[in-house]
Write a protein that binds this DNA or RNA. Structure first.
Lengths: 238, 238
DNA sequence: CCGTTATGCGTACAGTGTGCGCATCGAGAG
DNA sequence: CTCTCGATGCGCACACTGTACGCATAACGG
């Protein structure tokens, strides 16, 4: 096939679009997340991201308004990873809500750079994926039996706890990762009285579970028939 | 007095220490906090801070290793503002702990830039003032009757909630402040179905109190004599 | 009087986000 | 086919950042 194969070969030797690699917003956000995961938030620069995509720095501005918006998009993309349970019936609300909390915590631990970002942007102008998660949690609390005007407070209580503890954990593990050590070795080094046989990852997990159980206990007490749930909570709080 | 007055006049025309204003670390940190409070964290630059102190940018490096360390010092300085209650006896642990939580929340709301910083540095390498606050909270829980191996988990539960909700609130209020509006006007603009007579600040306060009460309820249940408190929690948690 | 030490500061360098204008492409009109 | 046009990539430039380095000067101890 000396002559006939030429058109087929030329498809590979000379690509159809010499320098028009068709940079898309999805790809930009995806590789930005990869860069954020591996190198942290201060290592993300437009030039570096462009280079990783085989493009110039300012090319990205055709698809993204500025660096801040890019990070916002990355945050919401990460929210899209959540595998949220469907809101179950009243008897199983605890496990459903606990599973949602664990999902959010795991998300933050997978992408530790997201924690300071949540504190910077808050929950105001976040994207559709984060909104979906909030809505899902609200229906879970609704299914649990919380009245319409209290479910927001219940959800905020749980989410504040999850964001707070996951933020602390994320800062901790990313500090250790940046130091090039493992969690176990780091703990053994920095607190010599630590039990060598204990797994610090498991301890973190247990600590998360402890607080979660306390909070769900406190919330569940509002649902018990004997409690003064009928009294709207707005009036009697400081 | 044409010739004799010259030394006296020269005191004012030419000061004794032409350029030696004796920059101290405390002053640097203090004005850094002022700048952070008024203009936010991304507006703090060494040159701007130096200018506000009547000094060059690189002069600051004689007293502070780098910008990150400066922010760390500012964070711990802010922790020093806390007016923590003394740990009271067993019957009043709830009000004592609640007061500590409210103090921390107020601190974050006074200095909203601190929120992302807490997520970046975690609670690891924080300074003496933050350490003092953690220790104080631990003794408060100890006085409440929590066993030695559970008080850390109880304190972490409470603090995670406080940090999480205060972080969210801080992002929210600083976003509004940056937009140049007031909280009431902003809420009225962005959600027209909001009750015009309600005070959004008060609503935030109530929401904080709601979650705080739920969490303290859940923790208090661990202290009731009927509960299975004797069983150490480490084993039976997921 | 002369070192020594501590401190401020000017300069410089590498790196950042991003506005602007030019070059080049794919596609559609004639 | 040619010609135009909108979309896209990109080089350049500007203002700005943190900070390493070396020099100048002031206070101090002899």
């Amino acid at each position: 096939m000396p002559a006939d194969a030429k058109p087929i070969a030329s498809v590979w030797t000379r690509p159809h679009h010499p320098q028009r690699e068709q940079l898309t917003r999805e790809q930009i956000v995806a590789t930005a997340i990869k860069l954020l995961d591996s190198d942290g938030v201060e290592a993300l620069s437009m030039r570096k991201l462009g280079a990783r995509l085989g493009a110039g720095a300012t090319s990205l501005y055709r698809h993204v308004a500025n660096r801040d918006e890019l990070v916002q998009l990355a945050v919401d993309d990460v929210y899209g990873e959540l595998d949220l349970p469907a809101s179950a019936e009243r008897t199983q609300w605890r496990t459903t809500v606990a599973r949602t909390a664990a999902e959010v915590r795991a998300m933050v631990l997978r992408h530790p750079w997201i924690a300071p970002e949540l504190g910077q942007v808050g929950l105001i102008h976040i994207g559709p994926n984060a909104t979906r998660m909030t809505a899902e949690l609200l229906t879970q609390f609704e299914a649990a039996g919380f009245p319409a005007d209290e479910k927001h407070e219940a959800a905020a209580t749980l989410m504040s706890y999850v964001i707070g503890i996951a933020t602390t954990e994320a800062a901790y593990v990313s500090l250790i990762a940046r130091s090039g050590s493992t969690e176990r070795a780091w703990v053994a080094d920095h607190s010599p009285d630590f039990d060598q046989d204990a797994d610090p990852r498991q301890l973190r997990e247990n600590r998360f579970g402890y607080g979660l159980d306390r909070i769900l206990d406190g919330l569940a007490a509002r649902l018990e028939p004997g409690s003064d749930r009928a009294a709207r909570w707005h009036g009697d709080e400081g």
